[in-house]
Amino acid sequence: MELLAALLGLLGLLGLLPLALAYSSVSDATLEGLPGPGTDFDIHSGALLAPILRPRVSGTEGSTAVLQHFLDFFKKELPEWRLELQNSSSTTPTSNGKLVPFVNLIATRDPPNAGIGDVGRLALVAHYDSKLEPAGFIGAIDSAAPCAMLMHAARSVDKALTKKWAAMAAEGTDDLEEKKGLQILLLDGEEAFKSWTDTDSLYGARALAEEWESTFNPAASTYKTPLDSIDLFVLLDLLGSRGPTIPSYYKTTHWAYKHMAQAEHRLRDLGLFKSSPNHPSRVAKRANENKRTEPLFLTAAAQEDGGFFGGYIADDHLPFLARGVEVLHIIPSPFPHVWHDITDDGEHLDVETVEDWARLVTAFTAEWMDLEGFFDARTKQKTEVTGKSEL
């Protein structure tokens, strides 16, 4: 029995090996040259974030306007991405028997000429709906800011993906067995309308997971269904408050958590995290003071045995997790104090933290997609007095 258990454990580790080997680090120069958001996260006029900072309850005018914002962004700035809308409807405890529409946006960038069902994908996920109550609830951390972070990450790696795939084609290596794509899932209907239950929550996620499980790719495909094509489901939620602490929730994706944590360490060491007490702009104002302790977002990288408590937080990943999808859940514990409060608005966001998350998710995506050497060379200009960087 002990030998059998050991063999089963080894097989489980071998099953994770291809994913782990698929991840490759980028250089410090690439990290330093990653595109910055500029003013895109300005809460009043930022091109990415500001249009999302409004009530957007599923089935309302606000929801439709925010969905159109996403569509306009991809169509204008990322025309190579394939856009799909997955529609469903359901009654809710507050709809008086009427059906409420839920619309998920799926944006996909696959290698050129890839066959249907032949591409494994990194799925970056956030929900875009807001709570019905309290009246006027914005949901800046929950999850307007995460949606904007994903938009930034998609735009930041897009040209590098094009260059990588063009280089592979020129070298005749575009038929490599390892084909990786990128997917942005902006999900509707995460919030409960009345009180959280299995049926009053996760409306969009439940509908999409169910549909993808029962949609079959051509018989000879590498992946049986669109659900099988998800190599890793990275869910961002409740991000944008200062000083978050993110546990590692699932043992089977702890290796991915550690890679993201390593990227965070490197970005901090390079002075690229604006919320850091050791960012050059702050150090310049503290002459002759020792370096302060560096706080971390991802605090559990050293964790190996025990402490994995995934599943206790109900979120959009659950319908996918229940169907065997590997999940990296990026959500703070404890939750930020503004969670589900009327104060969860743009004014209570920490924009430096929002920008840091955007940079970290972009770095993780660049490494997952093996994009070292495919970013345009950029000159990082620093003002020594203020330490401010413009990319």
Rank of each mutant, 00 (worst) to 15 (best):
L186N: 11
I230T: 08
F193K: 04
E294R: 13
L185R: 12
L186F: 08
D237T: 11
L270R: 10
I184M: 09
R292L: 13
S214L: 05
P280D: 07
G240I: 02
F193N: 02
L298N: 05
A261S: 15
W212T: 06
R266V: 10
R266T: 14
E264P: 03
T253M: 03
Y249W: 14
G307H: 10
E190G: 08
Y312T: 15
G204R: 14
A302V: 08
L267G: 04
D237G: 09
G306K: 14
L270S: 11
L235P: 00
L202Q: 06
M260S: 07
R242K: 15
E211S: 09
D198C: 04
K291H: 06
H279C: 05
F233M: 08
A205V: 09
L208C: 05
T197S: 15
I184V: 15
L227Y: 02
P295T: 09
L202S: 05
F216E: 00
G189E: 06
G189P: 06
Y203I: 09
T245H: 15
F193E: 01
T199D: 15
Y249V: 00
R282Q: 07
A301Q: 14
T225P: 01
P244G: 02
K291F: 01
G271H: 11
R266E: 07
A284E: 11
D305I: 14
I230E: 03
W255L: 08
D305A: 12
S201E: 11
D237V: 10
G306Y: 13
N288D: 12
M260P: 13
H279D: 00
Q303L: 14
L235D: 00
D231R: 05
M260R: 02
D269H: 15
D231K: 05
T253F: 05
E294W: 11
Q262H: 11
Y312E: 08
S275E: 04
N290Q: 10
V283D: 00
W196Q: 07
T253S: 13
S229Q: 02
Y203K: 04
F273Y: 14
A219Q: 14
A300P: 04
Y223V: 10
G204P: 12
G306E: 05
K291Y: 02
G204S: 10
M260I: 13
E289Q: 15
P247A: 13
L185D: 01
T197I: 03
M260K: 02
N290E: 08
K251I: 01
F273C: 10
S229K: 01
D188K: 15
L235F: 01
A302M: 12
I230Y: 03
N290C: 07
L202R: 02
S221M: 03
Q303V: 12
S214C: 01
L270Y: 14
Y223N: 10
S195P: 00
K224M: 03
W196Y: 06
L239N: 01
L227D: 00
D237R: 09
F233N: 01
V283H: 03
T197P: 06
Q183R: 14
T253Y: 08
K251R: 12
Q262V: 04
Q262W: 05
